[in-house]
Design a protein around this nucleic acid. Structure first.
Lengths: 331, 331
DNA sequence: GTGAAAGCGCTAACAA
DNA sequence: TTGTTAGCGCTTTCAC
């Protein structure tokens, strides 16, 4: 830690402390260019480093935002983290990122930590466990008490107290399903996510909407998954062994990969014997053969909206739905 | 922002400010339990939130660490970020994570920003561009001037001024190559990374060591890649069309995936007609068929060592090499 | 064991 | 236009 302060700079440049502060904060409209230069020179020669803690203590603006995600190792969240960080960088903000690892205690802890750090806004991707009936009240209390500007992302919480920027999962599912219908498939199975998780419930609603509208609904074609590989493999095997299914709408890409795997074992060819569409647009989907068509959340758009809301002084409490896009690939 | 301060807590609990501070910092050895309880109660009822900025301004300890990576979207770095964050959480530290997106200006900027934030330590994964002959001097100057405790990760910088925790790429390559030799392969090609990037150079040295020692060296089996898919596909095609190659050591998993892809196009079967080993142990390698055997950097070990060094007051400047492991899979 | 008080580095209102 | 000054909320000696 350097101990060169604004005071040293002022002395070196032969100006007052407040002049230095003004220059440093770009509020130097009324200060002659020569003075500005003198100050900047002094900063450079002294190798002055600004102390944001002191500045934020006084000004109540930390130029720091917080991001809490359920699992940073998940590529979806790391893409989001990267995206928010990039957008904030343009505005001179840094980002504290915490991954609660789907642990509710940690989630609450991190929210409080963010408050202690005086972040100017907190972007929260609520974990599924935090949104469970059991934990939701404490989550709400923590959020209310922390006094931060909260922007909820990804999942609709129905807490009705915060700005929410969520994915339109219903719409995304209709996109995927309609795509399959347009290809002429009539026997379209799906591998869902866990029950009572809103993303999966919404995707299922979208699926039902399309199959029913097209008169090809068959309840036995709905296979409940949990977004993980093991169960998806089991369900994929059951589906493929039926021999009466044309296409599968997997509610996430990981489940779609399981279909690829099981198809290989059963000597079926994805893209010929069975057609698959995924959800999430995981980067790997472009690497497998055949490349997987997948519904892609518009991460950039979501993050951009979220950051815009962070700086929006009006602070309107509302839920904004971001529509995903179907990324068509090989098949 | 709540405006309840330590002062309010003191008043509420009928004790002095310093008593509250002592309790809050766990330095309350000489304070009776009743008093401690009174303070804690007051904090709870007032919903007091500690202001870390003020605390760190005074105490010179921010309980904040910084991490700068070249690209957070890359799963390797997001795994690292998650790992360091988890380890630091145990010690009550938060982590500011910045992704410089392989942009050197941003990298320098972020280093200075971390200094301004008074982080207690900075973990830096230097970008390739930052380590180029052109930029290295400025990188060093920035690092020296920032006055932070620096811990370089991943790549050896040869700056000789900082603690470095790097991957032993030479060793990892010998592991991969020896594995192929043990399987009885004699015609082992490789797809390297970019020239003059130390990780690739070291892996090549490891490859050469093993093939030469086993008398199966053939210069024409070395195919220069760049860690990206496009070039890897071109090289993979050339290799497979030779029809005299048993096995391929791809210097990263992405290049290995390209071999899978091209093999499919040429109607060759990975695991039968051609054997592949990768490097990086990308999570996706467990999902493709056949599952890819890959050299895995020991991320946990690397991060643990790095964090240990952060708290090591002796501050010995040295380079620690972390040995990777071969993760054997399907083939 | 507890309290008073100085001051960390900075900002901003006010004065000159 | 520039300088003086009073804190921001907290830690930490040093008295009591």
């Amino acid at each position: 830690m350097s101990n060169i302060t604004i005071k040293d700079v002022a002395k070196k440049a032969n100006v007052s402390i407040s002049t230095v502060s003004l220059v440093l904060n770009g509020k130097a409209e009324n200060i002659p260019d020569v003075t500005i230069e003198k100050v900047k020179d002094a900063c450079r020669t002294l190798n002055y480093k600004r102390n944001m803690n002191a500045s934020s203590l006084k000004s109540k603006v930390s130029k720091l935002a917080g991001l809490i995600v359920p699992d940073l190792e998940n590529s979806y969240y790391s893409r989001v983290a990267s995206c928010i960080s990039t957008i904030l960088y343009e505005r001179g903000y840094s980002l504290v990122i915490s991954s609660c690892d789907n642990n509710f205690e940690k989630e609450v802890d991190y929210i409080n930590q963010m408050a202690a750090r005086q972040v100017d806004a907190l972007f929260l991707f609520p974990s599924a466990i935090g949104l469970s009936d059991k934990n939701k009240p404490l989550l709400k209390k923590t959020l209310d008490d922390c006094g931060l500007k909260i922007i909820i992302l990804d999942r609709q919480t129905f807490l009705n107290s915060y700005i929410e920027v969520v994915n339109d999962d219903f719409y995304g599912a209709t996109l995927a399903c309609q795509f399959l219908v347009n290809k002429g498939f009539k026997r379209i199975a799906c591998i869902t996510g866990p029950k009572n998780v809103s993303s999966s419930d919404d995707r299922l609603a979208g699926y039902l909407e399309v199959v029913k509208q097209n008169g090809i609904f068959d309840e036995s074609l709905i296979y409940v998954g949990d977004y993980h590989s093991e169960l998806a493999r089991i369900q994929a095997r059951l589906i493929l062994q039926r021999n009466d299914v044309d296409a599968i709408f997997a509610f996430n890409d990981l489940s779609a990969y399981a279909v690829y795997e099981v198809a290989g074992e059963l000597n079926k060819k994805v893209g010929e014997d069975i057609f698959v569409v995924g959800y999430d647009n995981n980067p790997f989907s472009a690497l497998i053969t055949p490349k997987l068509t997948s519904v892609g959340q518009n991460i950039n758009e979501m993050c951009q909206i979220a950051v815009d809301r962070m700086f929006d002084k009006r602070n309107v409490i509302e839920t904004i739905k971001v529509r995903p896009t179907l990324v068509e690939r090989d098949e």
